[in-house]
Simulated assay, not measured.
Amino acid sequence: MAPSASPSPGLAVTAPVHQARVRVLHPGQGLPPAGAKPGPVVYWMLRDQRLADNWALLHAASLAAASAAPLAVAFSLFPKPFLLSARRRQLGFLLRGLRRLAADAATRRIPFFLLTGGPMEIPALMQRLGASALVADFSPLRPVREALDAVVGALCRDAASVAVHQVDAHNVVPVWTASGKLEYSAKTFRSKMNKVLDEYLVEFPELGEVVPWDREQPKDIDWDTLIDTVCSQAEDVPEIDWCEPGEAAAMEALLGTKDGFLTKRIKSYDSDRNYPTKPMALSGLSPYLHFGHISAQRCALEAKKRRHLSPKC
Protein backbone atom coordinates (compact mmCIF):
# COMPACT_ATOMS: atom_id res chain seq x y z
CA MET A 1 0.00 0.00 0.00
CA ALA A 2 1.93 3.01 -1.25
CA PRO A 3 1.95 6.21 0.81
CA SER A 4 0.51 9.42 -0.55
CA ALA A 5 2.84 12.24 -1.45
CA SER A 6 1.47 14.78 0.99
CA PRO A 7 -0.47 14.01 4.18
CA SER A 8 -3.09 16.47 5.30
CA PRO A 9 -1.83 19.62 7.06
CA GLY A 10 -1.37 19.20 10.81
CA LEU A 11 -1.35 15.39 10.68
CA ALA A 12 1.68 13.93 12.43
CA VAL A 13 3.11 11.15 10.28
CA THR A 14 4.45 8.36 12.48
CA ALA A 15 8.05 7.40 11.77
CA PRO A 16 8.14 4.29 9.55
CA VAL A 17 8.41 0.95 11.32
CA HIS A 18 11.42 -1.19 10.39
CA GLN A 19 10.29 -2.98 7.26
CA ALA A 20 11.62 -6.33 8.47
CA ARG A 21 8.92 -6.21 11.16
CA VAL A 22 6.21 -6.09 8.50
CA ARG A 23 4.94 -8.91 6.32
CA VAL A 24 2.54 -8.08 3.49
CA LEU A 25 -0.04 -10.86 3.46
CA HIS A 26 -2.12 -9.20 0.74
CA PRO A 27 -0.99 -6.07 -1.14
CA GLY A 28 -4.40 -4.62 -1.93
CA GLN A 29 -4.82 -2.16 -4.77
CA GLY A 30 -2.98 0.89 -3.47
CA LEU A 31 -4.46 4.33 -2.89
CA PRO A 32 -8.01 5.33 -3.80
CA PRO A 33 -8.63 7.32 -7.00
CA ALA A 34 -8.11 11.08 -6.90
CA GLY A 35 -10.92 12.78 -5.01
CA ALA A 36 -12.12 9.56 -3.38
CA LYS A 37 -12.41 9.38 0.37
CA PRO A 38 -9.66 7.14 1.77
CA GLY A 39 -10.85 4.11 3.69
CA PRO A 40 -9.77 3.76 7.32
CA VAL A 41 -6.93 1.56 8.49
CA VAL A 42 -7.96 -1.05 11.07
CA TYR A 43 -5.50 -2.49 13.55
CA TRP A 44 -6.62 -5.99 14.55
CA MET A 45 -5.19 -6.27 18.03
CA LEU A 46 -4.45 -9.81 19.10
CA ARG A 47 -1.40 -10.51 21.21
CA ASP A 48 -0.21 -7.00 22.04
CA GLN A 49 -2.98 -5.38 24.04
CA ARG A 50 -1.58 -1.89 24.51
CA LEU A 51 -1.46 1.50 22.82
CA ALA A 52 2.05 2.54 23.88
CA ASP A 53 5.23 0.98 22.47
CA ASN A 54 3.29 -1.04 19.91
CA TRP A 55 4.96 -1.47 16.51
CA ALA A 56 1.79 -2.86 14.93
CA LEU A 57 -0.29 0.14 15.99
CA LEU A 58 2.50 2.49 14.91
CA HIS A 59 2.59 0.84 11.48
CA ALA A 60 -1.19 1.12 11.15
CA ALA A 61 -0.99 4.79 12.17
CA SER A 62 1.75 5.37 9.60
CA LEU A 63 -0.39 3.85 6.83
CA ALA A 64 -3.37 5.93 7.92
CA ALA A 65 -1.38 9.16 8.11
CA ALA A 66 0.19 8.59 4.70
CA SER A 67 -3.23 8.69 3.02
CA ALA A 68 -4.96 10.99 5.54
CA ALA A 69 -7.26 8.13 6.55
CA PRO A 70 -8.80 7.52 9.98
CA LEU A 71 -7.54 4.77 12.28
CA ALA A 72 -9.46 2.22 14.34
CA VAL A 73 -8.59 -0.65 16.68
CA ALA A 74 -10.52 -3.93 16.72
CA PHE A 75 -10.24 -6.81 19.17
CA SER A 76 -11.98 -10.14 18.63
CA LEU A 77 -12.78 -12.60 21.38
CA PHE A 78 -12.15 -16.13 20.19
CA PRO A 79 -15.09 -18.54 20.51
CA LYS A 80 -15.23 -21.79 22.42
CA PRO A 81 -13.25 -23.89 23.08
CA PHE A 82 -10.13 -21.77 22.52
CA LEU A 83 -11.20 -18.80 24.62
CA LEU A 84 -12.78 -20.77 27.42
CA SER A 85 -9.83 -23.11 27.75
CA ALA A 86 -8.49 -20.21 29.81
CA ARG A 87 -9.40 -19.91 33.48
CA ARG A 88 -11.55 -17.25 35.11
CA ARG A 89 -8.38 -15.61 36.43
CA GLN A 90 -6.93 -15.24 32.92
CA LEU A 91 -10.15 -14.13 31.27
CA GLY A 92 -10.89 -11.57 33.96
CA PHE A 93 -7.41 -10.14 33.62
CA LEU A 94 -7.75 -9.97 29.82
CA LEU A 95 -11.16 -8.29 29.81
CA ARG A 96 -10.37 -5.83 32.59
CA GLY A 97 -7.24 -4.87 30.70
CA LEU A 98 -9.29 -4.31 27.53
CA ARG A 99 -11.70 -2.16 29.52
CA ARG A 100 -8.86 0.17 30.46
CA LEU A 101 -7.47 0.09 26.93
CA ALA A 102 -10.82 1.09 25.42
CA ALA A 103 -10.97 4.08 27.76
CA ASP A 104 -7.43 5.11 26.85
CA ALA A 105 -8.22 4.75 23.13
CA ALA A 106 -11.24 7.03 23.55
CA THR A 107 -9.06 9.77 25.05
CA ARG A 108 -6.83 9.52 21.96
CA ARG A 109 -9.91 9.68 19.68
CA ILE A 110 -9.26 6.16 18.36
CA PRO A 111 -12.43 4.02 18.16
CA PHE A 112 -12.18 0.60 19.78
CA PHE A 113 -14.38 -2.16 18.34
CA LEU A 114 -14.82 -5.22 20.55
CA LEU A 115 -16.11 -8.18 18.52
CA THR A 116 -17.60 -10.98 20.60
CA GLY A 117 -18.58 -13.33 17.77
CA GLY A 118 -15.13 -14.51 16.78
CA PRO A 119 -12.44 -13.46 14.29
CA MET A 120 -14.65 -13.94 11.23
CA GLU A 121 -16.46 -10.74 12.26
CA ILE A 122 -13.34 -8.87 11.10
CA PRO A 123 -14.11 -9.07 7.33
CA ALA A 124 -17.67 -7.86 7.93
CA LEU A 125 -16.38 -4.94 10.01
CA MET A 126 -13.87 -4.05 7.29
CA GLN A 127 -16.63 -4.06 4.70
CA ARG A 128 -18.97 -1.89 6.78
CA LEU A 129 -16.21 0.63 7.45
CA GLY A 130 -15.02 0.66 3.84
CA ALA A 131 -11.54 0.01 5.22
CA SER A 132 -8.47 0.17 2.99
CA ALA A 133 -6.03 -1.83 5.12
CA LEU A 134 -5.88 -4.30 7.98
CA VAL A 135 -2.82 -4.56 10.24
CA ALA A 136 -2.61 -7.66 12.44
CA ASP A 137 -0.38 -8.75 15.29
CA PHE A 138 1.80 -11.83 15.04
CA SER A 139 1.07 -14.86 17.20
CA PRO A 140 2.59 -18.35 16.85
CA LEU A 141 -0.48 -20.09 18.27
CA ARG A 142 -2.17 -22.38 15.77
CA PRO A 143 -5.79 -21.20 16.36
CA VAL A 144 -4.69 -17.59 15.87
CA ARG A 145 -2.72 -18.41 12.72
CA GLU A 146 -5.69 -20.33 11.33
CA ALA A 147 -8.02 -17.44 12.14
CA LEU A 148 -5.72 -14.96 10.43
CA ASP A 149 -5.52 -17.16 7.32
CA ALA A 150 -9.32 -17.38 7.22
CA VAL A 151 -9.70 -13.60 7.58
CA VAL A 152 -7.13 -12.92 4.86
CA GLY A 153 -8.88 -15.42 2.59
CA ALA A 154 -12.24 -13.74 3.15
CA LEU A 155 -10.84 -10.26 2.54
CA CYS A 156 -9.02 -11.34 -0.63
CA ARG A 157 -12.21 -12.94 -1.92
CA ASP A 158 -14.74 -10.28 -0.94
CA ALA A 159 -12.68 -7.07 -0.95
CA ALA A 160 -9.65 -7.37 -3.21
CA SER A 161 -8.66 -3.75 -2.59
CA VAL A 162 -7.96 -4.30 1.11
CA ALA A 163 -4.29 -4.57 2.03
CA VAL A 164 -3.37 -6.94 4.88
CA HIS A 165 -0.12 -6.48 6.80
CA GLN A 166 1.21 -8.42 9.78
CA VAL A 167 3.64 -6.88 12.26
CA ASP A 168 5.67 -8.64 14.93
CA ALA A 169 5.21 -6.21 17.82
CA HIS A 170 5.86 -8.83 20.49
CA ASN A 171 9.51 -9.74 19.97
CA VAL A 172 12.48 -7.40 20.02
CA VAL A 173 13.85 -9.09 16.88
CA PRO A 174 11.02 -10.14 14.52
CA VAL A 175 10.58 -13.88 14.67
CA TRP A 176 10.75 -14.32 10.90
CA THR A 177 14.14 -12.58 10.69
CA ALA A 178 15.69 -14.01 13.87
CA SER A 179 16.61 -17.27 12.19
CA GLY A 180 15.82 -19.10 8.98
CA LYS A 181 15.87 -22.56 10.53
CA LEU A 182 14.79 -24.57 13.55
CA GLU A 183 17.31 -23.74 16.27
CA TYR A 184 18.55 -26.51 18.58
CA SER A 185 21.22 -24.59 20.49
CA ALA A 186 20.96 -21.39 22.50
CA LYS A 187 24.61 -20.73 21.73
CA THR A 188 24.17 -20.50 17.96
CA PHE A 189 20.85 -18.66 18.24
CA ARG A 190 22.30 -16.14 20.70
CA SER A 191 25.08 -15.24 18.28
CA LYS A 192 22.53 -14.54 15.54
CA MET A 193 20.51 -12.34 17.87
CA ASN A 194 23.51 -10.37 19.05
CA LYS A 195 24.45 -9.47 15.48
CA VAL A 196 21.14 -7.69 14.83
CA LEU A 197 20.07 -6.63 18.32
CA ASP A 198 21.27 -3.04 18.01
CA GLU A 199 19.32 -2.69 14.76
CA TYR A 200 16.02 -3.52 16.46
CA LEU A 201 16.49 -2.51 20.09
CA VAL A 202 15.64 1.15 19.46
CA GLU A 203 13.39 3.67 21.16
CA PHE A 204 9.75 3.81 20.08
CA PRO A 205 8.41 6.91 18.29
CA GLU A 206 5.34 8.64 19.64
CA LEU A 207 1.93 7.82 18.22
CA GLY A 208 1.01 10.86 16.16
CA GLU A 209 -2.27 12.72 15.79
CA VAL A 210 -5.03 10.77 14.08
CA VAL A 211 -7.67 11.84 11.57
CA PRO A 212 -11.03 12.42 13.32
CA TRP A 213 -13.25 9.36 13.11
CA ASP A 214 -16.40 9.88 11.01
CA ARG A 215 -17.55 6.33 10.33
CA GLU A 216 -19.62 3.74 12.20
CA GLN A 217 -19.26 4.21 15.93
CA PRO A 218 -18.36 1.27 18.19
CA LYS A 219 -21.22 -0.19 20.19
CA ASP A 220 -21.35 0.67 23.88
CA ILE A 221 -19.91 -2.17 25.94
CA ASP A 222 -21.45 -3.26 29.22
CA TRP A 223 -18.14 -4.42 30.63
CA ASP A 224 -19.49 -5.69 33.94
CA THR A 225 -22.02 -7.94 32.23
CA LEU A 226 -19.50 -9.12 29.64
CA ILE A 227 -16.89 -10.00 32.26
CA ASP A 228 -19.44 -11.83 34.41
CA THR A 229 -20.81 -13.76 31.42
CA VAL A 230 -17.45 -14.84 29.99
CA CYS A 231 -15.92 -15.69 33.35
CA SER A 232 -18.96 -17.66 34.50
CA GLN A 233 -18.42 -20.10 31.61
CA ALA A 234 -14.77 -20.70 32.46
CA GLU A 235 -13.24 -23.01 35.03
CA ASP A 236 -13.40 -21.33 38.39
CA VAL A 237 -9.84 -20.47 39.27
CA PRO A 238 -10.58 -17.26 41.19
CA GLU A 239 -9.24 -13.89 40.16
CA ILE A 240 -6.59 -12.13 42.22
CA ASP A 241 -6.70 -8.58 43.51
CA TRP A 242 -2.99 -7.86 44.01
CA CYS A 243 -2.17 -7.72 40.29
CA GLU A 244 -4.04 -5.00 38.40
CA PRO A 245 -4.26 -5.30 34.59
CA GLY A 246 -3.46 -2.58 32.07
CA GLU A 247 -0.59 -0.53 30.72
CA ALA A 248 -0.27 1.79 33.71
CA ALA A 249 -0.07 -1.12 36.15
CA ALA A 250 2.51 -2.82 33.94
CA MET A 251 4.75 0.23 33.93
CA GLU A 252 4.35 0.49 37.70
CA ALA A 253 5.51 -3.12 38.04
CA LEU A 254 8.56 -2.30 35.92
CA LEU A 255 9.51 1.18 37.16
CA GLY A 256 7.40 1.94 40.22
CA THR A 257 9.16 3.76 43.05
CA LYS A 258 7.74 1.37 45.68
CA ASP A 259 8.10 -2.15 44.26
CA GLY A 260 9.20 -1.68 40.64
CA PHE A 261 11.41 -4.46 39.33
CA LEU A 262 14.12 -2.23 37.88
CA THR A 263 13.97 0.27 40.73
CA LYS A 264 13.70 -2.07 43.75
CA ARG A 265 13.40 -5.80 43.15
CA ILE A 266 16.34 -6.30 40.84
CA LYS A 267 18.79 -5.70 43.67
CA SER A 268 18.00 -9.14 45.09
CA TYR A 269 17.13 -10.87 41.80
CA ASP A 270 20.59 -12.42 41.33
CA SER A 271 20.67 -14.10 44.73
CA ASP A 272 17.00 -14.75 45.55
CA ARG A 273 15.13 -15.40 42.30
CA ASN A 274 15.08 -19.20 42.74
CA TYR A 275 13.67 -19.14 46.27
CA PRO A 276 9.88 -19.67 46.30
CA THR A 277 9.65 -17.97 49.72
CA LYS A 278 11.07 -14.74 48.29
CA PRO A 279 8.59 -13.71 45.58
CA MET A 280 9.58 -10.06 45.84
CA ALA A 281 12.86 -10.94 44.13
CA LEU A 282 10.97 -11.75 40.91
CA SER A 283 9.97 -9.23 38.28
CA GLY A 284 6.18 -9.65 38.52
CA LEU A 285 6.01 -8.87 34.80
CA SER A 286 4.86 -12.25 33.46
CA PRO A 287 1.11 -11.48 33.22
CA TYR A 288 1.79 -8.12 31.59
CA LEU A 289 4.13 -9.61 29.00
CA HIS A 290 1.74 -12.51 28.36
CA PHE A 291 -1.21 -10.24 27.58
CA GLY A 292 0.90 -7.59 25.89
CA HIS A 293 0.18 -4.86 28.42
CA ILE A 294 3.85 -3.97 28.27
CA SER A 295 6.39 -4.41 25.49
CA ALA A 296 9.37 -6.72 26.05
CA GLN A 297 11.33 -4.13 24.11
CA ARG A 298 10.37 -1.42 26.62
CA CYS A 299 11.57 -3.68 29.45
CA ALA A 300 14.86 -4.25 27.63
CA LEU A 301 15.35 -0.55 26.91
CA GLU A 302 14.72 0.44 30.52
CA ALA A 303 16.97 -2.36 31.82
CA LYS A 304 19.73 -1.22 29.49
CA LYS A 305 19.49 2.30 30.92
CA ARG A 306 19.89 0.95 34.46
CA ARG A 307 22.40 -1.82 33.86
CA HIS A 308 24.97 -0.17 36.09
CA LEU A 309 22.65 -0.57 39.10
CA SER A 310 22.87 -4.38 39.01
CA PRO A 311 25.85 -5.47 36.89
CA LYS A 312 25.45 -9.17 37.79
CA CYS A 313 22.05 -9.26 36.10
Results as ranks from 00 to 15, higher is better:
residue 290 H to S: 13
residue 241 D to S: 14
residue 66 A to T: 03
residue 97 G to W: 07
residue 78 F to P: 00
residue 235 E to A: 10
residue 195 K to Q: 11
residue 33 P to H: 11
residue 62 S to V: 07
residue 69 A to S: 11
residue 191 S to Y: 04
residue 157 R to T: 13
residue 124 A to P: 03
residue 309 L to T: 05
residue 146 E to V: 04
residue 161 S to Q: 13
residue 281 A to T: 14
residue 59 H to E: 00
residue 31 L to K: 00
residue 130 G to F: 08
residue 77 L to K: 03
residue 19 Q to P: 06
residue 24 V to E: 07
residue 233 Q to M: 15
residue 129 L to H: 02
residue 88 R to F: 05
residue 151 V to L: 03
residue 186 A to T: 10
residue 114 L to N: 09
residue 54 N to H: 12
residue 300 A to M: 12
residue 175 V to A: 13
residue 48 D to P: 02
residue 176 W to M: 01
residue 81 P to C: 02
residue 289 L to F: 12
residue 23 R to P: 02
residue 103 A to W: 04
residue 75 F to D: 04
residue 49 Q to K: 14
residue 227 I to Y: 00
residue 141 L to E: 11
residue 186 A to R: 12
residue 289 L to T: 04
residue 83 L to S: 09
residue 225 T to W: 12
residue 138 F to Y: 15
residue 39 G to R: 03
residue 104 D to Y: 06
residue 184 Y to I: 13
residue 180 G to R: 15
residue 216 E to L: 12
residue 17 V to K: 07
residue 264 K to Q: 11
residue 44 W to I: 03
residue 293 H to P: 02
residue 200 Y to Q: 07
residue 230 V to P: 00
residue 266 I to R: 06
residue 23 R to W: 06
residue 290 H to E: 12
residue 286 S to T: 15
residue 68 A to T: 11
residue 178 A to S: 13
residue 22 V to M: 09
residue 156 C to P: 00
residue 22 V to K: 05
residue 258 K to R: 14
residue 64 A to F: 01
residue 299 C to Y: 09
residue 145 R to V: 07
residue 157 R to D: 14
residue 217 Q to A: 10
residue 11 L to K: 08
residue 236 D to G: 05
residue 157 R to F: 15
residue 290 H to P: 00
residue 244 E to R: 14
residue 156 C to F: 02
residue 20 A to L: 14
residue 257 T to C: 06
residue 184 Y to L: 15
residue 190 R to C: 13
residue 305 K to A: 12
residue 70 P to H: 05
residue 312 K to H: 15
residue 190 R to V: 08
residue 70 P to T: 08
residue 93 F to L: 07
residue 150 A to V: 05
residue 285 L to R: 08
residue 269 Y to P: 04
residue 253 A to I: 01
residue 104 D to P: 00
residue 125 L to Y: 04
residue 36 A to T: 06
residue 265 R to C: 01
residue 21 R to N: 02
residue 131 A to P: 00
residue 56 A to P: 02
residue 112 F to Y: 06
residue 161 S to V: 02
residue 155 L to H: 08
residue 266 I to D: 01
residue 139 S to F: 02
